[in-house]
Amino acid sequence: MELLTALSIGLLTAVGIFQMLRRNLIRSAIGLIILANAVNLFLLSTGAYAGTDPAYVNETITGQRSDALPQALILTAIVISMGGTAFVLSMLYIISSRYKTSDMDKVEGLKY
């Protein structure tokens, strides 16, 4: 399970960074989303995720429990990254409809 999680985080990060470096604006935005998800998975893995018993329910249960805090953290991070993603895509829509392209090199209003 640890190996699988580590591998999937690594794979997501690699794909995310690769897509971020593409010239296409939409691909780079998707790369950012993938990277954000890789980070969320990393945060999840900081708590013991192999817990089999519920936390904070019954004091008599003494089995392995997951740490609940990282789960609360990624919940917040997911909400923020979702808002950010929506905002990125809406700005992307305005930009690509203004320049009639999604090629980064042709969006050059600020390149003096």
């Binding site: 935005a29 954000a36 980070v39 990254s81 950010g84 992307l92 930009i95 600020l110």
Partner: peptide, 21 residues
């Protein structure tokens, strides 16, 4: 060019946020 500049900044800032996380 406001939207374009804002996009640039927001993209970089989300990257900064992933670093912080």
């Amino acid at each position: 060019y406001g939207t374009e500049a804002a996009y640039k900044y927001f993209y970089i800032s989300l990257l900064a946020a992933t670093f912080l996380l």
